[in-house]
Design a protein around this nucleic acid. Sequence first.
DNA 1: GTCTATATTGCGATAGAC
DNA 2: GTCTATCGCAATATAGAC
Lengths: 200, 200
Amino acid sequence: MDKDTRDKLIEAATPLFAWKGFAGVSIRELSKAAGVNSALISYYFGGKEGLYADVLESSLVYLLNTLEKIHHSGLEPERRIELFARAVSGLHKQKPFLLRLLQGEFVNPTVCFENIVKPYFEKIIVFLPAAIEEGKNTGRFDQDVNPFYAAMALSSMVNFYFVVKPLADHILPQDENRDEEYIRQVLKIYLSGVRRHGDA
Amino acid sequence: MDKDTRDKLIEAATPLFAWKGFAGVSIRELSKAAGVNSALISYYFGGKEGLYADVLESSLVYLLNTLEKIHHSGLEPERRIELFARAVSGLHKQKPFLLRLLQGEFVNPTVCFENIVKPYFEKIIVFLPAAIEEGKNTGRFDQDVNPFYAAMALSSMVNFYFVVKPLADHILPQDENRDEEYIRQVLKIYLSGVRRHGDA
DNA sequence: GTCTATATTGCGATAGAC
DNA sequence: GTCTATCGCAATATAGAC
């Protein structure tokens, strides 16, 4: 069938690009993993670069949709911040390759960084600052908090943890629900940190 | 001279490996950047992989020494946490390739991840939890705070910011002292977040 | 210690049969 | 739409002259 081979290639290529980077995988390896002929990469995607771009974009669409739902939920800021953190955590567990693909573009950018990653992030990056701004306006968050910096701080805590997880697994407490416990601690520290306190 | 060529290769290879990853650079590119013959990479390092391992290790030594000094400073926990954050921030500005090299190993691990990165991080990773534990023991930090998770959270905020900086530059406030202001916000949120509060 | 020249391997892409 | 075969090129590594 037509769609079958395309999808098989994208599915097989996603974890390979994520773990080895664009330059680290060959079209022979990609096609073998997908169980198709290597010539079909050029046939369907115009080459290795086209396949990579498709993998990247299909992953980003998923991320954007997930966060957009929370942004438009109409819930109050603290609850949205909590949902954001838990959604990202759940996302990384469900699709562990997504973060690696993005990280790969940040660390060793290909041409796709400008063409694909940047446009998507310009949309995504407004959600969290909006929630923080709203919390400031209702007077529950400290006025000294800068929404953009504070958004960056929370994103960092939630995402970086999953980046360094392969290493952290040997060091952090061997809790069965380690990810959930980490997010819980992060949210506790963060929300207490941005909240307006009586004296300070 | 003997040491000269070795050093020229390491110096030229560091930013190239950092920006393009191990698989993304060729020995021709490396030797050309160093202004030496490509055969000398095999002569001095036994091959491209040996050069990469040397680059990685020399960068990690620097990181370990910097953080070790703060750990043994004898200052009180809150001050050590502050110094740690500012030191890492300063480090990334002074040696912008270091973080990229490490990130590259986390995202697309080579054989050096197990052999080099992991051993160094097992030493580095104890400093911050020790400071947090001390803060709990003196009663100034909340008892619910887990030193390892909380250490991870602070490391994340400080490091991830510099990873995504190329993208954030287009979105964050165009402050001239943006890095310092970010670290200031992070420390304010974080220290307020882990501190023991009257009511909660 | 440093060079040139080259051996060898693997790459991405494509022509052409089916 | 899928295959085999192969082209042209660039990769790493090394042998041997200087």
